[in-house]
Structure formats: C-alpha cells, structure tokens
Nucleic acid binder design. Structure first.
Lengths: 229, 229
DNA sequence: AAACATTTGTCCGTATGTATA
DNA sequence: ATATACATACGGACAAATGTT
C-alpha cells in the first residue's frame, strides 16, 4: 500500500515554525506583554531550540508587526494602545469587503450550506456563553469567504490582521464578550445576499459586520486599562 | 561640534538589509527569473556575505510572496502569469481607496501642493517619453496619500503590492508604456476632490485610477509572452 | 537498495555595536 | 572618556533531509 509521503499527520514541522507559532501565540494571548524585552538566548532556552530558529521567527514577527527589532540593540514586543483598534479594523474591513465581492459570483451551494452551518454553531456557542469558541467560529466564517475569493494576497494579509485583532481582544477584554447575537443576524443577511448574488450588498454587509464590533470594542474599553511594560 | 550619531548618511545598513533589497531588486527587474532556483550558498558568494543574512532575507521574501521555500528541499522565485495581474490589483486598489478616504479629512494645503507638483512632473516625464521615471513619480503620488492616511498596516501592505506590480510591468512589458496622460487628468480630479474634502469622491477616483491600468495592461499582453523557467 | 551529492536546517562561537558605570 | 557588560549580527561547521546514480 502506497503511503503518501507528506500526509499531513506526518509532516515534520521545523524548529523555526514551532518557535514562530509559539511566540505568536504568547504574544497574542498576552503571555508576552507589550513592550516586553525578548532576548534570543532566553527564548532558545525556553523553547529548547538554538538561537537561529528563534532569530528567524523574530524576523518574521517583526514584519508582521508583533515585535520591533532595534538594530543591534534589543528586541521588544510591540506596544499597543486603545486607539490602535481604529487603525487595524479599517484595512481589515476593506479587504474582507473585497473578498465578499469576489466571492459572490464564485461561491457554490455547498459552500453556502457550510456558511449556514458555521453560523448556526456560532449562534449556539454565544447562547451557551462560550465567547472564545464563538470567536473562533466567527473567524472560520470570514475565512471561508476569503478562501472562496481565491486570492493569496488577500488571504495572507487578512490572516495577519486577524491575529492582530485577536491580540487586541485578549489584551483589552478580560472576557471576550464580542459579537452578540446581532452578528448572527448580519451573517444570515450576508448569506442571503450571496444566494441572490448581489455583490454590492455582500460588500456593504461585510463591511458593516466587521466595523460594528470595532466601535463596540472601542467604547467598552476604558483608557489605559491594560497591561504594558 | 556635536555630530548626531545616526545621521542618515552614516547609518550602517546590515548585511541582511543589503541582501534583502538586492534580491528584491533582482526579482523585480527580472534578473532572477520566475521559477529560478535560489541556492543560498551561491547567493552568499555573489553578495559577499554569509548564509545567515541570505537565509533571513529569503524568509522575508517568502512572506512577501517573491520566493517559495519548499521546506528542506529548495527555494525558488515565485512564478507569475498573465492572470496574476487580476489578483494583484484589486486588493491594492481597495487599500489605496481606503487610504484616500482616510487622507481626505487629514491632508494639509502643503501636502496638496506637493501632490500638484508631483503630478506636473509626472505629466512632463510622460511628454518627454520617460516612462520609467514617470512610473516612479506616479508611485510617489500614491505613496504620499498613503503617508497622509497615517496607517502602518496600509503602508506596509501597499508597499509590498507596489513591488509586485512593478515586477509585473518589468516582466511583461518590454517598454513600460503605462499610464498615459489620462492618468494625469485623474490625478488632477483626485486633487480637486481632496480640496473640497469629498471623501466618497476621492475613494471612487482612486479606485478608478488604480483599476484602469489593470485592464490596459491585461489587454496589451499576449499570453505567455514572458520568460519563465 | 544503498551510498553519494547537494542543499537546507540547526547549532554555537565570535565580532560588532550599544548602553551603563 | 574609558572600560565593562550585554545583546545582537554574522560566520562557519555540522547535522538532517532530499534526490540521484
């Protein structure tokens, strides 16, 4: 029996990849706090790999905007403040809206069924009071649309932006209480617009669905209510 | 006399930065052709640095979408085909349009004068038959607006997209004959909309000014008229 | 199938640069 | 101003993985 060589369960993940995703997780969930100094020798001890993959991971994190490397001096987790939310959301919304536009003529019935399934699950998790899980389903909903849009430039950028948004929620909200049931309704409207193939409508609804939480978040945050070096 | 330590002329550029910008240049101008295999030892010889900064540069180029690293196997310059132009422009236009919207209430009279100056120069270069120089001025025009929008997420993404577009032009057009005089007019209309602070109009005009060249380019290219491995 | 050649991935020592006493 | 401590940047050697003969 022929076994495919790179069957996903057996893909070997490199030390660099491990370091990258671990550091990313730590920065997003606040284990590594904004402004914290990162020393590669310490990180390499902590993660059990040498300094090289750590450094490579840090370079990538710098490009993604999660750390700042002061040439020859030091490396720190990027700071973040309340008003940053106003900078992150608009470009994210613009590309999500574009993704919706591009997806409108492309989306299959099967994929629409999938969106419905995700939205039902999303609603259920909100009812059950599982906001973290619900957030993940919301992300899944949006990512499926990006996938349908089939544009690697959009997907790579939105994936990074989504991580920044997630970090923001983790840092500023003790309990992620985003996206109330109104989002479920918006999703349903969006799905209906996909079904009737109204691109202008999907664009508008998508923009709304992304931007509304921005204002809710912004107003629910007291200034300086967050940990920082 | 006190000499500022980091006066720009004396800033030391790291080996990684040099390698990155050189490789980027080579990929954009077609010295390194699509699909070409990149061996880090060869590159380190060619650039006179060790493998470490080369590898770091390649990681960044991978994120930017200029090379593909096949884990443990090989690294190649990304391929590109005629239809890619249809994927690159829309997200670029979406963010440029957003930048215009954000810049509209922020732009100063001085910055508007600057746009006019750039557009005049741009027009002059087109008349003189200097399309490369003209392209640079066009980029300057758009970059100034992005700068005014003051959003690092937008600027980092658009900067990468602009490089992809430039690469596209270098690979597919023997003589960059982009942006005829119609673009000068569009810029002038855009400037007028900035002056009257009409955000909806600047958005629309910006989108048009970015997307029109896409179609012109697309139709001026015969299929498979480009070098590739 | 197995040894080889090639290239990438990782480790770690050292040089360089920066900040502090 | 000089020396010292510290962290990063770079280099070169070794290990692991892949493809080939």
């Amino acid at each position: 029996m022929p076994i495919p060589k790179d069957f996903s369960a057996f893909i070997k993940i490199s030390a660099k990849e491990r370091a990258l995703s671990q550091l990313q997780r730590w920065i997003i969930d606040g284990t590594l706090i904004p402004g914290e100094k990162l020393v590669d020798t310490e990180l390499s001890d902590a993660l059990g790999v040498s300094r090289t993959p750590i450094r490579e991971a840090l370079q990538i994190l710098e490009i993604q905007g999660f750390v700042e490397i002061y040439h020859g001096k030091e490396t720190r987790v990027t700071k973040i403040e309340k008003d940053d939310i106003l900078k992150i959301y608009p470009p994210f919304a613009a590309l999500q809206s574009l993704a919706a536009e591009l997806a409108t003529p492309m989306i299959s019935n099967e994929q629409i069924e999938n969106l419905k399934r995700i939205n039902t699950e999303f609603s259920l998790l909100l009812d059950r009071g599982q906001p973290y899980k619900a957030m993940e389903l919301d992300e899944e909903f949006h990512n499926l649309i990006v996938e349908v849009a089939d544009n690697s430039y959009i997907s790579s950028f939105t994936s990074t932006m989504q991580k920044h948004i997630r970090r923001f929620k983790y840092l500023f909200l003790k309990h992620v209480r985003t996206t109330e049931q109104i989002s479920v309704t918006e999703h349903a409207e969006l799905i209906a617009a996909f079904e009737s193939r109204e691109a202008a409508k999907t664009m508008m609804l998508m923009k709304q669905n992304v931007m509304r939480p921005m204002w809710e978040l912004y107003e629910s945050i007291e200034t300086n209510s967050f940990r920082q070096e």
